[in-house]
Design a protein around this nucleic acid. Structure first.
Lengths: 239, 239
DNA sequence: TCAATAGTGTCTGTTAGACATTATGGA
DNA sequence: TCCATAATGTCTAACAGACACTATTGA
């Protein structure tokens, strides 16, 4: 990954009305693009650095919560509410931040892919495998954001919220593969999905395409009443 | 869990020399005590609230990193370097903080149990299952800290760093059980441990005790050259 | 008929937990 | 002798991945 540290961090522009905090809220915003994850970047304001990019960012205003601010950043940058959002952590440690914030709180969020990607002008989506030149602190956040997303996929219905209300099992599997960055075994995927009782079949079938039609499913998690989930065995996943 | 919100947050006392940040560094510090985890709390300064407690906390100084500051907080509160430490996240969101910090960065850390627990006076260890009256933000941190510790036990040698250089397998298992807060199956624990090649037997045996003597082991992880770790299957652990 | 995709059945190796058994010391 | 703890062997159920096979559409 290439890197870029802005020479003198710009002083935050003074604003008028509501009290603005001294820390920034930065969002690693992902969307599915093809078979890969794409991350949203905004062009650096500095005209000397037209090939330098940043993550969307702002400050909290008034007594707004951290997550509210992060949702606002997502809406401002993409026009959409996040399908899922979660805090990654606080970043400081001498890694330069473009807006000069002493400390930044990073969030990771996802939105479904949309035709209106606002990719014109100052916003652009980059493949996570080939990110653009970013400030040091944003590089760290991107890496942590991918990791946080992938560890959360098993515990939050992120893939389901990225799909339309009806989807085929192949579409669901492709979404999981895209989020996790690796291929999954078809039979195992469907076995585990059936055991988890998370989806139910609809009466509709996909009409298009040239293979066998696929049945549509919808996300309909069964609240497993009483059935205690078995505790997992210890793993020794050091090194 | 009981709660306590300090009525008017005390204004941070002005200090002289190094630049102090506007955010606090708070540490959820655990130690093994008996078969349970204990968390270190300090007595609230306010004399009206002698039964109110807080988590150890400070501000970063100069250009000190977040983790350096957290390690300093651990040393100041316990006299020991943490055996393991990791950031939990940023907390704000209107939950009152005792030192009036707008934003707090929480860390979770562990130290081995020691005779000198500094438990006299203003410091005390509390069982995690029966924590004292804490400010709202510290209650949230304690809950998140326990969760973060338990999810990290499988991926970092936390248990090993809490034990002396030589330990029996039963001691190791009891440490894992204490950290995870649940019982483990003995045969499965040893099978998985042997497969992970993390420990090696010494020639020494425990002399005390009234049962069969146990062999001592030491932490000696074999760097698994080449042996690619199998990717885990997807879990559908929602709800 | 062929290519492409959907969906399923069977087999096998691995693993986790239950259970039982042996081993070895102290009271 | 009895008890407590250590250590290990065997069995079974669950599971994950490999593989092959059937099913159904459009070109």
């Amino acid at each position: 990954m290439r890197d870029w540290d802005p020479a003198p961090p710009a002083t935050p522009s003074p604003r008028a009305s509501p009290r603005r905090s001294s820390h920034s809220i930065d969002v690693v915003l992902f969307t599915p693009r093809g078979r890969q994850l794409a991350v949203l970047c905004v062009r650096a304001a500095d005209p000397r650095a037209r090939e330098h990019w940043q993550l969307p960012s702002d400050r909290t205003e008034g007594d707004e919560s951290l997550e509210s601010a992060a949702r606002r950043v997502v809406r401002a940058a993409s026009g959409l509410d996040p399908a899922w959002i979660e805090q990654v952590g606080a970043f400081a440690d001498g890694l330069a931040h473009p807006a000069g914030a002493e400390l930044s709180v990073a969030f990771v969020a996802v939105i479904p892919s949309s035709a209106d990607e606002r990719a014109a002008g100052e916003h652009a989506w980059f493949s996570v495998s080939e990110p653009p030149l970013l400030p040091a602190r944003h590089r760290a956040m991107l890496e942590a954001g991918v990791g946080a997303l992938r560890t959360r996929v098993d515990y939050a219905p992120i893939a389901f919220h990225l799909l339309p209300p009806q989807f085929t099992l192949s579409e669901l599997q492709r979404m999981y593969e895209l989020l996790l960055g690796r291929r999954l075994h078809k039979a195992s995927f469907r076995r585990a999905l059936a055991a988890a009782r998370l989806v139910e079949a609809t009466e509709e079938w996909r009409s298009e395409g040239r293979g066998r039609p696929a049945q549509f499913y919808r996300f309909a998690p069964r609240t497993r009443s009483g059935a205690r989930r078995a505790a997992r065995a210890v793993r020794f996943d050091l090194l």
